[in-house]
Design a protein around this nucleic acid. Structure first.
Length: 205
DNA sequence: CTATTGATTGAT
DNA sequence: TCAATCAATAGG
C-alpha cells in the first residue's frame, strides 16, 4: 500500500474544516518494530477562543507546540498517565489544533496489539485498539518525543498521509457526523467533534 | 505552600 | 462509580 504525505496546502483552511478533512486520512509511524498506521475516523477541533482549549489561557511550556506552524504535532500528558495526539492548525503564533480521537488500524496490527496488550491477555477485537485518544497514542507508540514534529515531512518518523490512489481521482466516500465533544465541561455545547458515520472504530457513538 | 481540575481509561 | 497519578492553575 502506498502513501503520500499531506501537502502543506491541506492546512490552508479553517481548523473546523481541517478537523473534517482529516477524516479518512492516515497517521503513519515508522517504528523500530516496523510500520504502524491507522485511518483517522474521529477528530475534535480546539479553537483559540474556545474555553475548552489548552491554548485559551495563552502559551505555557506544556502547550507551546500548539502555537507552532500548521502540520506540527502537539502531544500532551494528561490525567497523570496518558498522552493525547493533536495536529496543529492555523498560523504560527495562533494556538489551534485538532485532537485525533480514534483510528481504524490498517498496518502493524501485531505491533499495536503488543503495545496495548496487558500482559498475558491477547487483543481479540481490533475495534478497541485505537478507539480513544490515549489508546491510539499507546497503540502507535507515540511518546512525548513526538511533540513538536513536522508531520508533513517525508523524513519524519511520524507523519500524516493519504493513499496514493486519492491522487489519481479515486475517492473513498463517507458521511461525516457532527456532534459535541467528549470529556470537557467548558464549551461542551459546541459541535466540534466529527466522525465517520457508521465506523466501528470510533470511541463513542 | 495546598487544593482542585482535567481534551482518559479500565476495573468494580 | 472510581482510582490511578501529575501538570497547570487558583487561592492563602
Amino acid at each position: 500500500m502506498s502513501y503520500k504525505s499531506l501537502p502543506k496546502s491541506f492546512f490552508n483552511k479553517s481548523t473546523l474544516d481541517i478537523a473534517k478533512g482529516l477524516l479518512g486520512k492516515y497517521i503513519i509511524h515508522q517504528t523500530k518494530e516496523g510500520l504502524v498506521a491507522g485511518k483517522i475516523v474521529e477528530t475534535e477541533a480546539y479553537l483559540i477562543d474556545d474555553p475548552a482549549s489548552h491554548s485559551f489561557n495563552g502559551e505555557t511550556n506544556r502547550n507551546k507546540s500548539m502555537f507552532m506552524k500548521a502540520g506540527t504535532s502537539y502531544v500532551y500528558f494528561t490525567y497523570g498517565m496518558y498522552h493525547c495526539f493533536n495536529v496543529v492548525t492555523n498560523k504560527e503564533g495562533v494556538g489551534e489544533a485538532v485532537l485525533i480521537r480514534a483510528l481504524e488500524p490498517v498496518e502493524g496490527l501485531e505491533v499495536m496489539k503488543r503495545n496495548r496488550g496487558k500482559k498475558g491477555t491477547e487483543f481479540s477485537d481490533a475495534r478497541n485498539l485505537c478507539s480513544g485518544p490515549a489508546k491510539l497514542v499507546i497503540a502507535l507508540g507515540i511518546t512525548k518525543e513526538h511533540d513538536g514534529l513536522d508531520l508533513l515531512s517525508d523524513d519524519s518518523p511520524l507523519r500524516l498521509a493519504q493513499r496514493e490512489k486519492e491522487k489519481t481521482g479515486e475517492k473513498e466516500s463517507f458521511e461525516i457526523v457532527e456532534t459535541t465533544r467528549i470529556g470537557i465541561s467548558k464549551g461542551a455545547s459546541l459541535p466540534h467533534r466529527f466522525y465517520i458515520k457508521g465506523s466501528a472504530f470510533v470511541s463513542r457513538k
